[in-house]
């Protein structure tokens, strides 16, 4: 187990290097710092000095890979690649184009993101599995067929509509909840309920349908028949045999996402003005702040890889057949 985790971590390094190289190519080679300066400062009316000044200010005035002017180790360290890409490995995100420290921004905004994402995620899983199990009880009946149609209909509605209509009817028309905003601490719950409810509902269609088909697949397997032949009741078969055996595919889909929850939800946070990482990123995208985007790409992939490792570890817990080696 331990050696497995070590090996997975070692395997993660080339992947992170790959992510890093890819972002580096995207951000510095496809478009040179000059291009970005021009784009930032406004298209045609920009002078060469202004461009150079912007570049120097952001620290993009070094060579890409090798600095011939510097001495010793400096040939490699005084470069854009080292300062802007490799330093990410040490979680040194540097400053945003607006001059703030990305690291402290990220830490500060993680809280609100989690306050929204965690409840949405776990309530969502609970609701979806319950709905799917309920539907499975009526398998083959008209209720089952009707439920499937409802699931497909729900998943055919754009995520944005859930938010727009939810905000419109729940907050604006019936004034049950505040339209948007955020508050630290306990009082914050009033602001969170609506986005959580919308987040959960918008996911039901696709997820419950997926769980249902998983359950049906497992319930057709031989051991479910054995259990029935032993005299186990239908509910017993469902909870003691089918559910534990669907854990593996469920975990594959679910555990991977947990670390990425830190990143928050771009759309939801910005609609409800929640000052989390999602809205941070969205603002950065809209302001074309590439330093933040780059840092977040890296952070996202680190979290994803952690998720992968957690998934593997959770397998051993869910299925005795899986041995990590």
């Amino acid at each position: 187990m331990f050696s497995y985790i070590i090996r997975r971590l070692c395997y993660a390094i080339p992947i992170l290097i790959g992510v890093n190289l890819l972002t580096f190519i995207l951000f510095f080679i496809v478009n040179t710092p000059e291009d970005m300066a021009t784009a930032h400062l406004g298209d045609k009316y920009v002078t060469e000095e202004a461009v150079q000044e912007w570049i120097a200010e952001k620290g993009y005035d070094q060579p890409l890979f090798v600095n011939g002017d510097a001495d010793g180790l400096g040939t490699l360290t005084d470069t854009i690649f080292f300062n802007k890409s490799l330093k990410l490995f040490a979680f040194d995100f540097g400053t945003s184009d607006a001059g703030r420290s990305i690291q402290s921004d990220v830490l500060e905004r993680m809280g609100p993101s989690l306050a929204l994402a965690l409840p949405t995620f776990f309530i969502g899983i609970f609701v979806n599995i319950s709905v799917a199990l309920m539907v499975l009880m009526f398998r083959g009946s008209n209720l089952d067929r009707f439920a499937v149609v409802v699931f497909v209909t729900l998943m055919s509605i754009s995520y944005l509509f859930y938010i727009i209509f939810g905000q419109y009817y729940m907050a604006k028309m019936s004034r049950l909840f505040p339209v948007s905003g955020f508050n630290d601490g306990i009082d914050g719950w009033r602001f969170l309920i609506l986005p959580i409810v919308i987040g959960v509902i918008s996911g039901i269609g696709a997820s419950a349908r997926w769980y249902r088909s998983l359950f049906i697949e497992v319930s057709g397997q031989d051991f479910a028949r054995t259990a029935r032949a032993k005299g186990v009741s239908e509910a017993g078969v469902l909870f003691r045999h089918i559910l534990p055996n669907t854990m593996l595919p469920i975990l594959t889909g679910v555990v991977v996402v947990i670390p990425v929850l830190f990143m928050g939800s771009l759309v939801m946070e910005s609609f409800f003005s929640i000052p989390g990482l999602g809205s941070y990123l969205l603002d950065a995208i809209r302001a074309q702040d590439f330093a933040i985007v780059r840092a977040m790409v890296f952070l996202g992939s680190v979290l994803y890889i952690i998720g992968l490792i957690l998934t593997d570890i959770s397998y051993t817990w869910a299925d005795p057949r899986v041995r990590l080696s």
């Binding site: 992947i15 790959g18 992510v19 890819l22 972002t23 995207l26 951000f27 496809v30 478009n31 291009d35 970005m36 021009t38 784009a39 298209d43 990425v260 990143m263 771009l266 990123l281 995208i285 074309q288 590439f290 985007v293 780059r294 977040m296 790409v297 996202g300 992939s301 994803y304 890889i305 992968l308």
Partner: peptide, 25 residues
């Protein structure tokens, strides 16, 4: 694995932004 590990929406956003810069230039 490398591509999957980058959050999809972010990769899309970054690429689109960079392409916009290229078009404008």
């Amino acid at each position: 694995t490398t591509l999957i590990s980058i959050p999809g929406l972010l990769l899309i956003a970054a690429s689109v932004l960079l392409f916009q810069v290229w078009i404008n230039n």
